[in-house]
Amino acid sequence: MHKDLNRGTNDAHSDSYEKFEDQIAANPDNYRNIDIRIEYDGPPASAGSVNRLSDVNPSDRVPTQLEAKWVDENGVGRSRNFNNINP
């Protein structure tokens, strides 16, 4: 995960996934039916020949986007996208 998505320092970074996790932990009733999809830029180069995740090239294991969906306390469906592409 890109370091920007992993910051939780106060309110300096509302755009971090870490902060999102903190928000859910602090107000679990406001985040129900959580559904998260992690996207990659296609299958790994070695897809046809590997049997274990650890054999996959590390750079092929980096997601491009994380998308989280949930239902808030008012029954409204919400979603948030986190861009993990470098830079």
Binding site: D4, D11, S14, D15, D72
Partner: peptide
């Protein structure tokens, strides 16, 4: 602004920098 019942989230300095 990300509106939510637990309090609106506004961009912080780190977000503006990014």
């Amino acid at each position: 602004v990300f509106t939510q019942a637990s309090g609106d989230i506004r961009p912080g300095p780190g977000d503006c920098w990014n």
